[in-house]
Design a protein around this nucleic acid. Structure first.
Lengths: 221, 221
DNA sequence: TAGATTGTTAATCGATTAACAATC
DNA sequence: TAGATTGTTAATCGATTAACAATC
């Protein structure tokens, strides 16, 4: 079992999910002109255990922290970004130029995560040929050839749920590596394809539950 | 420590997060005309351990499963919906009628989770007075009074991140119980206020990581 | 120096899984 | 009846936390 790189520390999924929070926290610190930061203070800020934060950071940081002062804010930001793959440029297409698709197209923040959306696809004759936030809307028939020819890595699905699986199949045939799925279905995909689901309904469900429980236990106080 | 209701089984956060998946699975079964379903088959479908599924279901189901046949699909759907609070009607407002806000306003699926969006708020003179998907856009100055007077339970924040905290403060003053936050900031809120964050950036980060790792370990095969 | 902070090893805690008796 | 499936109790597993020596 040979290592593929000098540092091959795998984070648990839980630890991974904390990374965005560390990054937010560090970027806020950087804005405030703070140069070094301790795991302890990050932990306090995020209401996490300090040893937990120290372990997570140790796994991604290229340098050790210094007792008394902590970690270099700037270096740590760089390390997390590198670890998370922000520095890789990733071309993406968006399928479904409805209101959600348009909202994503208008979001310029994604560029800083290495994501560029290079084209949008739709079935609507009215939309085809137009440009949304500077990005052309092409007919869905061209999806497969476009992705294959342009080496598109990520397909973003913002179609109605009925179309999502069909679109996913086309994207896979065209060679995308990952799918960012906003349609409210669980896609059936070959195991090598990475998926990230954004299911607003599930999020709403959690919100609903919290309100519900809250009301049910009012008498507790 | 007296119980507030006959069934006071608290699910772990992990179990809660599995509920939407059970519900999807059950609704699919119902569509296919299946009347009873076993925990084992749900577990297979969702690639989970069967005992895990059985425990989760036991916690929310009002009836016991029958050996050999399993659970009533319809009853179980009803129980999960009840447990998660879908049956409570919840009025909401949306703050920020930009592209994301508009996408949410156009989403009629939310109604089935008990959520109705009754008004939208924005600062843009061009938008104020117009209606989006049949919902009026009001000036942001009216947010507090509107929520207080109409007993709004949920505030949905789709503003730019700079405005989000300010908006949240107003919503809290106006008496909302929960905030569905789409702005990329962690809001500071009183402890009794429930928040559900939808941070697309974090989701994108996970996608980015998965692609990055995938490429880094190609030689593994 | 003293003390804040680091990283590591061991203990704890809690979720998941395995084993098994009960039952339709 | 036989066997699929249930629910429960005990074992396992893995993540988090506690304790502590090292160090700037």
């Amino acid at each position: 079992m040979k290592k593929t790189s000098e540092k091959e520390v795998y984070l648990t999924i839980q630890a991974l999910q904390r990374m965005p929070y560390y990054l937010h926290c560090l970027e806020k610190a950087e804005e405030d002109g703070i140069q070094t930061i301790s795991a302890t203070s990050i932990a306090n800020e995020l209401k996490l255990n300090d040893v937990l934060v120290r372990k997570d950071i140790a796994a991604v940081s290229s340098t050790q922290g210094k007792p008394k002062s902590g970690f270099q804010v700037e270096g740590l930001i760089r390390d997390i970004k590198e670890y998370m793959g922000y520095n890789d440029h990733k071309d993406a297409v968006i399928v479904g130029a409805g209101s959600l698709g348009r909202a994503l197209l208008g979001n310029s923040e994604f560029e800083q995560y290495g994501l560029s959306i290079t084209a949008a696809f739709d079935i609507s004759k009215d939309l085809i040929g137009t440009a949304i936030s500077g990005i052309k809307v092409l007919p869905i028939e061209k999806l497969e050839s476009y992705c294959a020819e342009n080496g598109i890595l990520i397909g973003i699905i913002t179609t109605p749920m009925e179309e999502a699986q069909k679109v996913a199949d086309v994207l896979v045939r065209a060679g995308v590596q990952a799918i960012w799925n906003f349609a409210h279905v669980d896609l059936e995909l070959p195991p090598q394809i990475k998926v990230e689901n954004v299911h607003l309904q599930d999020s709403l469900m959690m919100l609903s539950y919290n309100i519900h429980r809250n009301e049910g236990t009012k008498e507790e106080a």
